[in-house]
Simulated scan of single mutants.
Amino acid sequence: MATITETKLTIPSSEIHEAHAEEMNCSNRSQWLRAAILGANDGLVSITSLMIGIGAVKQDPKAMILSGFAGLVAGACSMAIGEFISVYSQLDIEVAQLKRDSKVEALADQESLPSPVQAAMASSMAFSIGASVPLLAAGFISSYEVRIGVVAAAASLALAVFGCVGALLGKAPVLRAGIRVLIGGWAAMAVTFGLMKLFRSGRL
C-alpha cells in the first residue's frame, strides 16, 4: 500500500505578526476616517442649529456669526478633551494587554496603538471643518431671510455629502444613509429654530 505523507507548511511567526499589524493599521485608518466624518457632521449640525436658533431671536448678522464662532471654539475644545480622555483610557487598556502577551506580539502591535494626542487633534479639526460651513455661508450675507436660507441650504448639502461618505466608508447603502443624516440635521435645525421662536414670542 502506498503511503501518503502530509507536508505541513510552517509560516514564520514574523510574517504572521506583520500581516496582523497591517490588518490592524487598515482597521485603525478606517475607524479614524469614520470618526472624522462623524466629528465633522457633529460640528455642522450643532453650529448650524445654534446659528439658526440665534437667528430666530435676533436678526443681527453679528449675533449669528459670533454665536457660531463661539460654538465652534467651545465645541472643538470639548471634542478634543473628550477624545483625548477616551483614547487615553483605551491606550491604558491595550498597553496592559500587551504586557500580558509575549514580547514578539508586543513589538508587532506597538505601531497599532492609538495616540491620544492625534485623536484629540483629528476630532477637533473635524468638528471645526464641519462648523465652518454655516459660518462661511453666513459671513457675507446681510439680508436676514437670505442668510437663514443660505445657512440651511449649505448645511443640507454638507450633511448629504458627509452622510454619503460615511456610508461608503462603512460599506452601507449610500442613498439611505445620506437621507437619514439629512433628515436628522433638518430635525435638529427645525427644533432649535422653533423653540427659539417660541422663546422670543414669550410662550416659554
Rank of each mutant, 00 (worst) to 15 (best):
I65K: 01
S67N: 08
S67C: 10
S67W: 04
S67G: 15
S67F: 05
F69Q: 05
F69C: 04
F69E: 01
A70I: 11
V73I: 15
A74V: 14
G75I: 08
A76I: 08
A76T: 06
A76L: 10
A76S: 15
C77N: 09
C77P: 04
G82K: 09
E83N: 01
E83C: 08
E83M: 10
F84E: 01
I85G: 04
I85E: 07
S86V: 01
V87Y: 01
V87P: 02
Y88M: 14
Y88C: 11
S89C: 12
E94R: 10
E94M: 12
V95Y: 15
A96Q: 11
L98Y: 01
D101E: 13
K103L: 10
A106K: 03
A108I: 00
Q110V: 12
Q110C: 11
Q110K: 15
L113F: 01
P116G: 09
Q118P: 09
Q118K: 14
Q118R: 14
M121P: 05
S123H: 03
S123M: 06
S124Q: 05
S124T: 05
M125S: 14
A126P: 06
F127T: 00
S128N: 05
I129Y: 03
I129R: 07
I129M: 06
A131G: 08
A131K: 00
S132T: 15
V133E: 00
V133S: 07
L135P: 02
L136W: 07
L136F: 13
A137E: 02
G139L: 12
F140Q: 04
I141F: 04
I141W: 10
S142T: 14
S142F: 12
S142P: 04
S143M: 12
S143E: 14
E145N: 13
V146P: 10
R147E: 04
R147W: 09
R147P: 02
G149S: 15
G149Q: 14
A152Y: 02
A152I: 11
A153N: 04
A153E: 06
A153T: 02
A153V: 06
A154R: 05
A154P: 02
S156V: 05
S156F: 07
L157E: 02
A160T: 12
F162G: 08
C164T: 11
C164Y: 03
C164L: 12
V165D: 07
A167G: 14
L168R: 03
L169V: 06
L169S: 08
K171G: 09
K171A: 13
P173S: 13
L175S: 08
G178A: 12
I179F: 07
I179L: 09
I179Y: 00
I179T: 04
V181C: 01
V181Y: 03
L182H: 08
I183N: 07
G185A: 00
A187M: 15
M189V: 08
M189Y: 03
M189C: 08
A190E: 02
A190M: 11
V191D: 09
T192H: 14
F193M: 04
G194P: 10
L195W: 04
L195C: 02
M196Q: 13
F199W: 13
R200C: 05
R200T: 07
S201I: 12
S201K: 13
